[in-house]
Simulated assay, not measured.
Amino acid sequence: MKQQGFFQVLLVIVILTACGQLTNTIYVPVMSDMAKDLNVTSSNIQAVMALYLISYGFSQFIYGPLSDHYGRKPIILIGLVIFIAGSAMSGIAHTLPLLLTGSFIQGMGTGVGGVMSRTVMRDMYSGANLQRANSFVSMIVVFTPLIAPALGSWISSEMLWNGCFWFLMIFGIATWALVFTHFNETHKPTPEHRMNPIASYRLVLGMGQFNRFTIMLVVTISGIVLFEASAGILMVDVLHLPTGLVSLLFILPLPGYLAGSWLAARMAKKHSLERILLIGILLLGLGSMMMVIGGISHYLSSMAILIPAFVYFAGAGLVFPTATTAALEPLPNNAGVAGAVLGGVQNLGSGLITLAASTMPMHNQLPLGVALTMLTVIVVFMFCLHMAPSAKMPMAH
């Protein structure tokens, strides 16, 4: 595809993915207001985020094989219609069960973006070019989940918290129109490449390399989601910071992730994916331990939370596009199913971890630091399995 075509597709993918990312964190600064209005606890509102992530992850298992069979564009349009309906239901929600239902439907719709953010780039590129493309996408789409709280804070100040969901509905309608008019199909399935969904899943899940890197991605993204779910409560409920300030502070870890993704793209030409992953894992461990040390020393401040998060995000910026490339590289004809497994398992895992985190006491950052450390240990274990001689496979440079 020509360079101009790449940026056109990139714009569509970024905006499509933003639907899911905005939905996940746009209401973080007003979680306490939502809890008061619905007469529930802040931990109950965390369950809204968790349920969204679970449906967001589950739906990707459906969208992946459908997009391999019918093409990417029609499936994207269907998913966006579902997202618009869920946003409208959440906008009118006056009870927690109705909000949970609307959030679940939102996730069933935005799951299509989770698949396409990985699949479309695999349709277009392979090897080092795929690594750089994934890094580029990673750098751009990371803006939305961290900037979303600032947007949500401003919207809620004008329209109360329900306004966040009305905004998402309008954003979904605009995205549907953009996809319909400016997105050209990147995958035109042929009869010889069409595979039974069960056989396709069996092929993908039977690859050891794919499974190891999928687990790496699950625990890495879970750490980011766990920070997003926990940091808001620590800053608002424990440190008693204004919600407007909290929404701005959420942006501070962003340069760390951007630096990591930029470095991953730069290193793709001259270094193996293993070397890039190793640097990322070291940063994940350093950020986790800094959070633990702050908690053990009973020193709690916004910077004691955000500086370790910055380091952790830098590691995630290196690991995320690199592990995605390593997982998708061997599967050009099953990219939809592979992207579905990557996205689906990541978000199902993140949702379950966030749901578990809603039961953790949040008196300081120590529980968050311990959780991040445990997740990093899993990443290290998967990396060691990959490096074992019996599991080693050539990876793209």
Rank of each mutant, 00 (worst) to 15 (best):
V141W: 11
L249W: 01
P361L: 15
A323E: 07
R275T: 15
G232V: 04
F381Q: 04
A93P: 04
P367Y: 12
K270Y: 09
D123R: 05
R212Y: 10
I233W: 06
I62V: 15
Q209I: 09
M31Y: 13
A174T: 13
Q21G: 09
Q209Y: 12
L263Q: 10
G317E: 04
L375T: 06
L22S: 02
M387C: 14
V219G: 05
F320R: 04
L283R: 10
P97S: 13
P361K: 15
G5M: 14
I62K: 01
T110M: 10
Q21H: 13
M31A: 10
N364H: 05
K36A: 13
M34F: 02
I215H: 01
M216V: 05
P255I: 00
N24T: 14
A268Q: 06
L252I: 14
P242G: 06
G223H: 06
T220F: 06
S247E: 07
P189Y: 13
V14K: 00
V319E: 01
T25F: 06
K36D: 09
L284M: 00
L254W: 02
P330G: 01
L205Y: 03
L226Y: 11
L263G: 03
L286N: 07
L53R: 04
A174C: 14
R275E: 10
G114M: 00
P197L: 00
V40Q: 00
G152P: 12
A199R: 09
K269H: 06
A18F: 06
G20T: 11
S301C: 10
L239W: 12
S301K: 07
W166V: 10
G343V: 02
V238T: 14
L328I: 03
V9R: 06
Y312C: 05
I140P: 05
F381K: 02
E158Q: 14
C384G: 08
G208E: 14
R212E: 02
P308H: 04
F6E: 03
L385T: 03
V9T: 09
V141T: 14
L226N: 12
A340F: 07
I147K: 04
G232L: 03
H271S: 11
G351F: 05
S55E: 12
G244R: 02
L96M: 13
S200H: 12
G260F: 01
L273A: 09
A231Y: 04
M267N: 13
Q4F: 03
N24V: 11
T324L: 01
T41K: 09
L342T: 05
I13D: 00
V345G: 08
E329N: 08
W154P: 11
G113V: 09
I75D: 00
G339C: 00
N134Y: 11
Q8R: 14
A229L: 05
V380Y: 11
F227D: 07
T175L: 05
M291Y: 12
P332S: 07
K270D: 15
G280A: 09
F227P: 00
I198R: 02
M1P: 14
L248I: 15
